[in-house]
Amino acid sequence: MQAKVKAKGSAQPLVVSANRLRDGRVVWLAADGGWVEHLHGAVVYLGEEVDAGLAAGEADEQRQLVVGAYAVEVVETPGGMVPLRMRERVRVDGPSVLPVAAE
């Protein structure tokens, strides 16, 4: 399963992501310690630095702010930062399909 591949220890740059507890929306950890709804606002970690982000995520789970914080591998592209894995790209972009005749 693709679910939450362990990205810690990856050579790729990393961001920390989670779902917000109260509404489930996808969020990323920002430099100011808050959670933002856009990947481009996320703080990027290299190597072991991510431990600090994961610790912040865990602390915010204890404070009922987010659920299931984990590290996500990203790559820099000319268009900006994108996740390495398909699963995380879908979390950034939303479903790739629209419902029939969306109202």
């Binding site: 489930g24 659920v67 299931g68 699963r87 879908v90």
Partner: peptide, 28 residues
């Protein structure tokens, strides 16, 4: 109780699941 922190996610998950509520990629 969950929003107030009286239930952990580990404890809440089976309770919400028995009411059909999953946490998926983008939302519940």
């Amino acid at each position: 109780r969950r929003l107030a922190g009286e239930l952990t996610e580990d404890e809440f998950k089976p309770l919400r699941l028995m009411n059909g509520l999953y946490l998926q990629l983008h939302a519940y």
